[in-house]
Amino acid sequence: MTLNKITPYLTILFTSLILSCSSDNDSAATTTTDPTLANKKALGASARDFLSAEQFTSMNVEIAYVEGFRPSNTTLSNLRNLFSQRLNKPDGVIFTETVVPASTVGALNRDEYTKIEEDNRTVFNVGDELGVWVFFTNENSESDEGNSRILGTAYRNTSCIIFGETLRDFSRGITGPSLTQLETVTTEHEFGHLFGLVNLGTPMVRDHEDETADDDGEETPNKHCNQDNCLMYFQTVADATSTTMNGLPTFGEFCQEDLRANGGK
Rank of each mutant, 00 (worst) to 15 (best):
H224A: 15
K40S: 14
I150S: 09
I12E: 08
E211K: 11
T212I: 14
S52V: 05
Q181A: 05
V198W: 04
E54Q: 13
G152P: 01
I12V: 12
N226R: 11
G127S: 08
I116P: 01
T236I: 15
S16V: 01
P177R: 05
P177M: 06
M232H: 11
T114W: 09
A261S: 15
Y233L: 10
R206H: 10
R48V: 11
S22T: 11
C21N: 14
L10F: 00
T158W: 00
L10N: 15
G192S: 08
D258H: 12
P177S: 01
T74M: 06
T33I: 10
G152V: 03
T104F: 00
P101C: 05
N78W: 01
H189I: 00
H193L: 09
L259G: 04
S58C: 04
K115N: 12
G106C: 10
V99N: 05
C21Y: 06
N157A: 15
P249C: 13
F50D: 02
D24W: 10
V237F: 12
N88W: 04
T15G: 13
T187F: 03
M1G: 07
S22M: 08
D258G: 13
L231P: 04
E145I: 10
Q227W: 02
R206W: 02
T243M: 10
V205R: 06
I116N: 06
F170M: 13
T30A: 06
S23C: 06
A42S: 15
L10E: 12
E145M: 12
S58T: 07
T57W: 01
G217Y: 01
S159Q: 05
G131N: 11
L13K: 10
G68A: 07
V198R: 13
V123D: 01
E183N: 06
T243W: 02
D228I: 12
S171R: 03
M245Y: 05
E190M: 04
L79I: 08
N25K: 12
D258F: 00
P71F: 01
E142P: 00
K5A: 08
K265F: 07
F234S: 15
T32Q: 09
N39L: 07
N229E: 15
V205K: 06
E257Q: 14
R156C: 08
T104M: 00
L231N: 12
V126M: 09
N120G: 07
C160G: 03
G106P: 11
L37W: 08
D239P: 01
N25W: 14
N157M: 12
S159T: 13
G152N: 08
A53Y: 07
E190V: 00
L167P: 06
D239S: 12
D119K: 10
V99W: 03
S143K: 07
N39K: 08
E219I: 02
G173W: 04
E211V: 08
